[in-house]
């Protein structure tokens, strides 16, 4: 019997400060026991529990893609006890990771479809994983058009800046990078809130087009009517939720929304599913 609460030991291999306010850092982890990497076989959209002995555990979406081998990456916003401690840790430090946990984005359904990714703020991590996976030469032909609308408050608050510019140069993905506002004269992408940009840039909804939406509640609130107007069915709008978690495996009882656990039955739900669930998130 495998103890599902036992983390795999990992070493911090690299730490990248992502945003100008230093509130977001990406941690690249390497498994101490190489065999654990195979056990951690994951898909984009899943999460892991980062485990720091003496501090506790936090559920964080996996930012790396399964197409990237030899490490796993998590981008972490400094907000509570564990994340604050993690932000002060150094390359070479040992900690633990449990996972992969939760359900990924529904890749079987998404195959052969147009994909529009809509992200805001720091909720772009599993979306990064998804983009890397879809753009992989082995995978790109499995999808039709790919659109990405990604917004942040300012240029300095965007995650994965180098990758964003590289994707913007490609002709097999339509990048719509936007910020709320800036006085930087060299800013070469869009300005405006995500719902507005969605209205202008998103393809119309149809059976073959799926939107994956992750962002702060305010962005989701104003983006949903836009998608409704564009003709997106609620079955074709996919969202990823967060709730306070401990076990991550549907046992400890706190992250439920109705009969479903965000950790085990989610975090990915379609808007149709969410329409029939209490708004306890």
């Amino acid at each position: 019997m495998q103890n599902p609460y036992l983390p795999y030991p990992v070493r911090i291999d690299e730490i990248i400060t992502e945003t100008e306010d230093k509130s977001l850092k990406t941690f690249k982890f390497v498994f101490l026991n190489p065999a654990d990497e195979e056990k951690f076989a994951y898909e984009s959209g899943q999460f892991g529990e980062l485990s720091i002995p003496g501090m506790g555990e936090i559920p964080i979406g996996i930012a790396s893609s399964p197409m990237e081998k030899g490490f796993i990456k998590f981008t972490v916003f400094k907000t509570g006890k564990v994340t604050s401690y993690l932000h002060a840790m150094k390359v070479g430090d040992i900690m633990g990771i449990r996972g992969p946990l939760g359900k990924p984005y529904p890749w079987e359904t998404l195959e052969g479809k147009n994909i529009i990714i809509i992200g805001g703020g720091f909720a772009f991590t599993t979306l990064r994983s998804s983009i890397i996976s879809m753009l992989d030469p082995d995978n790109r032909s499995k999808f039709k058009d790919i659109h990405v609308i990604y917004g942040a408050r300012s240029p300095g608050m965007l995650l994965y800046k180098d990758e964003l510019s590289a994707w913007a140069e490609r002709d097999d993905i339509n990048m719509h990078i936007t910020i709320d506002g800036t006085d930087d004269p060299d800013w070469k992408y869009l300005t405006g809130f995500v719902p507005t940009i969605t209205e202008q840039k998103a393809p119309p909804g149809n059976e073959d087009t799926y939107a994956i939406v992750c962002g702060p509640p305010i962005m989701i609130k104003f983006t949903q009517p836009v998608l409704d107007n564009l003709g997106y069915s609620h079955d074709n709008i996919i969202m990823s939720l967060e709730n306070r978690m401990k076990c991550g495996i549907g046992i400890c009882g706190r992250c439920n929304i109705g009969k479903d656990f965000v950790c085990k039955d989610g975090p990915v739900f379609t808007l149709s599913q969410l329409n029939n669930m209490p708004k306890e998130y």
């Binding site: 907000t79 006890k81 994340t83 709730n243 306070r244 306890e280 998130y281």
Partner: peptide, 12 residues
């Protein structure tokens, strides 16, 4: 505290 998020938000 059972459901209290680190952000301060609490769904219940």
């Amino acid at each position: 505290l059972f459901t209290h998020h680190a952000s301060g938000h609490n769904p219940r």
